[in-house]
Amino acid sequence: MLKAAIDADIFRETIDVISALVTECRLQVSDAGIQTRAVDTANVAMVSIEVRPEAFTSFTATTQELGMDIAKMKNIIAMMNKGDLLSLDLPEDGHKLALTFRGYKYSITLLDVNTIRKEPNMPNLDLPGRIILSGNALNSAIKAASVISDKIALGIDPTAGIFYMEAEGDTDQIRLEMGKDELESLSMTEARSLFSLDYLKDMGKVMSRATQVEVLLGNDHPVKFLFDIADGKGHVEYLLAPRIEAD
């Protein structure tokens, strides 16, 4: 059973976070809110998200797993206006989730959870580098790099005391450096890894709305992005596997 009401914008934010990586997921619903963890089809990126009951205007739920068609949800969200209140309603043992807003009532058939990939294990990672910056700055850097390349290196140079992002195309280069005064926080540990901009572009769009993004970096290791949504009542972790530097 699920009976909840939520601001359309917060719901849109939640769906956007997930849809950046996957088109369907297993949504865990309980009295602690909603949460999911999913990897993309290529096993390169992972999203974990939790939205606490306080993010909803009202929320009652029993523990269950729902198979969500995220791509379809995204299309429905396009029909909502800013400031709409969305109510979600799933009866006990029901297979259809009712979404009601502004007099519209969508009745969405849930996916069979067995057809959706299981929630992955969280890799154990050693990510010593830590940077905190605004989501907007991060997204801008990603966009700037994607003009000339399909990959970007993120790194910390402790001797110069900077966080840098650099990208190299066939003929062109771009480098962006940010010192301590432009960042919220920077750890002085050597780190550098290379990532596919294909994935980062989609993640960056979502992260641009966050006031603060915590970036955890290692050497040729995945990168982890942590940020809040829904005014701190929801939390997101993105994990992205690196590319190895070309020979």
Binding site: N121, P123, A241, R243, I244
Partner: peptide, 18 residues
């Protein structure tokens, strides 16, 4: 080929689950 380059250099998350 950018796909080929990606396939050769892209790691997956499984590579980091020990």
């Amino acid at each position: 080929s950018t796909h080929f380059r990606t396939i050769r250099t892209q790691k997956t998350l499984f590579d980091f689950i020990s």
